[in-house]
Write a protein that binds this DNA or RNA. Structure first.
Length: 692
DNA sequence: TGCGATGCTCGTCCTGCATG
DNA sequence: CATGCAGGACGAGCATCGCA
C-alpha cells in the first residue's frame, strides 16, 4: 500500500527528475532499441528521495504504457518524449497525450489479414464456436489455403511492410540524434558509393552489412538490417538519384522490390523474385525526372526498360515491368497491352521461368488493386487471374487459375504452364504440385480433402494420448482426455496440484522469466516478501484454499466445473511480480508485487474449464508437461478437426485468388517450420518412449 | 456474504522481426 | 541460431472493488 501510495505521490517535478536522471545514465551512444537499453539500465542508480529503483522503473513503465509512447525509438528518445509529455501535462490537459500518440504499427501478417477477413463470416456461420475454436478453424483454413489464395495476403503484407519501413525510416530520419550516430559510421561512405553504382543507379544496395548510405546533398538515410540495407530518402530527397522525388531503396539479402508511393519509390528485391509496386501516382520505371527503382539481382530482374514494355511508360502513373529471362510476363508486356493501367499503376513480375499475372479490376492480365497492380510468378508456373473485369483469366468454379489463350500470353506458358484443372477446390494445389513436384514434393494434391500436407508451417503435434484416431476432434474428446496435461511450457505443475492430473496450474511464461533459473522458487511467493503486503493477494493463496470452489457466477457457468470442483493453487504468472527487481525485470514487468498498482499478481491457472477442455485443444495434454522444456506452445496442438466446420470453398473467400510464391515465407519462418517438422517426426517416432 | 461491474489476462492461430 | 514478442479479435476466467 505504501508503495502504491508512493506511486501516486509522484509529482510532476519528481517525474521530471526521474527522466533527467534517466537521461544521465543512458549509455551513449544510445542506438539500441529502447527495450534493450531499458533492460540493462541500472535502475537502482535512479533511486532518489524515497523512490527506490524499482519504483522509478515502475513509474517509467507507467509513463510509457499509459501514454502510448512510441516504441520504435531508442530509450533516450523515449525519455525525451516522456519529458515533453510531462511538461505539457501541466499546460493543457488536452495536449499531453497527443504528442505521444500515433505509434508506428507493424503491418499485419498475412495470417492475421486472413483471420480478420474471414472471422466475421465464420462468426455468423458458426456462432457456437468459441473464439479459440474459431481461431483454430481459421488457422486450419489458412494452412490449407491454396498458395495462390494466400498471395493476396502476402502481397498486402509486403506492401504495408514497405510502407512501414518507409515510415520507420522517415521517423528515424527525423531523429537527429540517431542520425548523428549513424553518421559516425564508416559504413556510410561505403554504402553511399554502392548506391551510386552506374548500373543500379537508382537503387541503393548493400550486399553485405553496410548500414548507412547517404546522398551528399539531399538528406537521406539508409539503414541496413543484418545483411540488408535500406536506403531511404525523405521528401524531396533521394538516396538513389531522384532529384525531386524521394526514393527509398531497400535491399534485403538478395531480394528486390520496387515500390513507389506518391513521390517516393522503394526498391527491394527478394531472392529470385521481385515485386514492384506503385500504389499511387508514382512513376518508377521510367519517369524522366524520377529515377527508376527497379533493379535486377541474380536471377531476377526488374525491368524498367522502356523497350520491353509499353506498359512501363506511363508518365504520370507508376508502372513497373520485369522481364527476367524466361518470363512469359515480360513477353506479354512487350506485345500486348496487358498490364496497362492508364490511371492505375501496374506491376508485372516474373522471376525465373515463371510468370503470374492477375488482374482484379482494370487490368486484364496484370493484377491491379485499385491504384496498383502486382503480378507475381512462381518458379515454373504461370497463372493468370482476373476475377472481375479481366478478360483473360476465368476460372470455372473455384479454381483460381485460369487460362486465356488469346488475351494473355501471361497465362500461357507453353512449357511450364500450370493452368487450373481441378474443378473443385484444390486446383491450385494441383497445378502447383505439378510444377513443383519435380523439385519439391512438399506440395500435395488432394483435390477434395484438406489434408494436404503441404508446406504447412505449423507442426501438428499429437500427444501420445491423443494419438489414436486421425480425425478425432479435440472437441469431441471426452472430458477424460483432459487428464492428460497439455504439453505446453505454459503449463507448469505445482507440486501441490500434482494429485490432480491435468489440472496443473499453468505458469504463463514471460520472456525473462523462462530464462531466470530462480524463477521457480519465486513462483508462489507470499506477498509478505514484498515491502508492502497486499490486501488479500492472490499470490498468497494457499493451495488449500483451492478446495473451496468459488461461487462466482461465472464459475458456475463453466460447463466442466463438475469435474473439478476444487481449484488448484495459483501460481504467479509474471515473473517480475513476484521477484526482486534487481536484475531481470524487463519492460512491462513490474519489479515487485507490492508495487503493482493495478494489476494483481495473478496466477497462471485456468479454471476447471480449461482443464476439461471439451472445446479446447487443451484436452490434448501430455502428462509430462512440467518436465518438458519450453517449446513453442503452438507446437503442442492437435490438428484434429472433427469439430471443425467443413471447409468452405474458397470461392467466396477470395475475390482475388492469387498465386503465391511458394517461397513467400521468410527464412526465419521456414527454419522454424523445419524445426517443427523435426520435432514432429521426433515426437512421432519417440512418442512411445516418451515420459509418462 | 454474495453478486454485479470492472479491468486484466489468457488462449488460440501465424509470421516477421528483434534480441540474446 | 534459437527464442520471444507483437499484431488482430474476443470469450472466458479471474481478482478486486463496491454495494446490498
Amino acid at each position: 500500500m505504501a508503495a502504491a501510495k508512493s506511486q501516486d505521490q509522484w509529482s510532476q517535478e519528481d517525474v521530471l527528475t526521474l527522466l533527467q536522471a534517466m537521461k544521465a545514465i543512458i549509455p551513449s551512444p544510445d542506438i539500441s532499441e529502447f527495450k534493450a537499453t531499458e533492460y540493462h539500465l541500472d535502475w537502482n542508480n535512479l533511486a532518489f528521495k524515497n523512490y527506490s529503483g524499482s519504483m522509478c522503473r515502475q513509474k517509467w513503465m507507467d509513463l510509457t504504457a499509459k501514454q502510448q509512447v512510441r516504441k520504435h525509438r531508442t530509450l533516450e528518445e523515449l525519455v525525451l518524449d516522456a519529458e515533453k509529455h510531462v511538461q505539457n501535462l501541466s499546460k493543457s490537459p488536452k495536449n499531453y497525450v497527443e504528442p505521444l500518440r500515433n505509434p508506428l504499427k507493424k503491418p499485419l501478417t498475412p495470417y492475421i489479414r486472413f483471420f480478420l477477413a474471414k472471422r466475421p463470416k465464420y462468426v455468423t456461420q458458426y456462432p457456437n464456436l468459441s473464439t479459440v475454436d474459431l481461431t483454430k478453424v481459421l488457422s486450419k483454413e489458412f494452412r490449407e489455403l491454396p498458395a495462390e489464395h494466400k498471395v493476396k495476403y502476402f502481397q498486402d503484407f509486403q506492401i504495408e511492410k514497405l510502407e512501414y519501413n518507409i515510415n520507420l525510416a522517415i521517423f528515424r530520419k527525423k531523429s537527429s540524434d540517431l542520425l548523428k550516430n549513424l553518421n559516425k559510421s564508416n559504413v556510410l561512405e561505403k554504402q553511399s558509393s554502392i548506391a551510386q553504382s552506374p548500373k543500379n543507379s537508382s537503387v541503393a544496395q548493400s550486399p553485405n552489412n553496410s548500414s548507412v548510405a547517404q546522398s551528399p546533398k539531399n538528406s537521406s538515410v539508409a539503414q541496413s538490417l543484418k545483411n540488408s540495407s535500406v536506403a531511404q530518402s525523405l521528401k524531396n530527397s533521394s538516396v538513389a538519384q531522384s532529384p525531386k522525388n524521394s526514393s527509398v531503396a531497400q535491399s534485403l539479402k538478395n531480394s528486390s522490390v520496387a515500390q513507389s508511393l506518391k513521390n517516393s519509390s522503394v526498391a527491394q528485391s527478394l531472392k529470385n523474385s521481385s515485386v514492384a509496386q506503385s500504389p499511387k501516382n508514382s512513376s518508377v520505371a521510367q519517369s524522366p525526372k524520377n529515377s527508376s527503382v527497379a533493379q535486377s539481382l541474380k536471377n531476377s530482374s526488374v525491368a524498367q526498360s522502356p523497350k520491353n514494355s509499353s506498359v512501363a511508360r506511363s508518365p504520370k502513373n507508376s508502372s513497373v515491368a520485369q522481364s527476367p529471362k524466361n518470363s512469359s510476363v515480360a513477353q506479354s508486356l512487350k506485345n500486348s497491352s496487358v498490364a496497362q493501367s492508364p490511371k492505375n499503376s501496374s506491376v508485372a513480375q516474373s522471376p525465373k521461368n515463371s510468370s503470374v499475372a492477375q488482374s482484379l479490376k482494370n487490368s486484364s492480365v496484370a493484377q491491379s488493386l485499385k491504384n496498383s497492380s502486382v503480378a507475381q510468378s512462381l518458379k515454373n508456373s504461370s497463372v493468370a487471374q482476373s476475377p472481375k473485369n479481366s478478360s483473360v483469366a476465368q476460372s470455372p468454379k473455384n479454381s483460381s487459375v485460369a487460362q486465356s489463350p488469346k488475351n494473355s500470353s501471361v497465362a500461357q506458358s507453353p512449357k511450364n504452364s500450370s493452368v487450373a484443372q481441378s474443378p473443385k477446390n484444390s486446383s491450385v494445389a494441383q497445378s502447383l504440385n505439378n510444377l513443383q513436384n519435380q523439385k519439391n514434393s512438399s506440395v500435395a494434391q488432394s483435390p477434395s480433402t484438406s489434408e494436404v500436407p503441404r508446406k504447412s508451417p505449423r507442426v501438428v503435434k499429437r500427444s501420445s494420448m491423443s494419438k489414436a484416431p486421425e480425425n478425432s476432434s479435440r472437441v469431441g474428446q471426452s472430458p477424460s482426455t483432459s487428464e492428460v496435461p497439455r504439453k505446453s511450457s505454459r503449463v507448469a505443475q505445482s507440486p501441490s496440484t500434482s494429485e490432480v492430473p491435468g489440472k496443473s496450474p499453468r505458469v504463463v511464461k514471460r520472456s525473462s522469466m523462462s530464462k531466470a533459473p530462480e524463477n521457480s522458487s519465486r513462483v508462489g511467493q507470499s506477498p509478505s516478501t514484498s515491502e508492502v503486503p497486499r490486501k488479500s493477494s492472490r499470490v498468497a493463496q494457499s493451495p488449500s484454499t483451492s478446495e473451496v470452489p468459488r461461487k462466482s457466477s461465472r464459475v458456475a457457468q463453466s460447463p466442466s466445473t463438475s469435474e473439478v470442483p476444487g481449484k488448484s493453487p495459483r501460481v504467479v504468472k509474471r515473473s517480475s511480480m513476484s521477484k526482486a527487481p534487481e536484475n531481470s525485470s524487463r519492460m512491462g514487468q513490474s519489479p515487485s508485487t507490492s508495487e503493482v498498482p493495478r494489476k494483481s499478481p495473478r496466477v497462471a491457472k485456468r479454471s476447471s474449464m480449461s482443464k476439461a477442455p471439451e472445446n479446447s485443444s487443451r484436452g490434448a495434454q501430455s502428462p509430462s508437461t512440467s518436465e518438458v522444456p519450453r517449446k513453442s506452445s503452438r507446437v503442442a496442438q492437435s490438428s484434429s478437426k472433427a469439430d471443425v466446420p467443413e471447409k468452405h470453398s474458397d470461392d467466396d473467400d477470395d475475390e482475388c485468388p492469387i498465386t503465391l510464391d511458394a517461397t513467400g515465407t521468410s527464412q526465419t519462418t521456414q527454419k522454424r517450420q523445419q524445426r517443427k517438422r523435426k520435432d514432429e517426426t521426433n515426437d512421432e517416432s519417440g512418442s512411445g518412449s516418451k515420459k509418462f
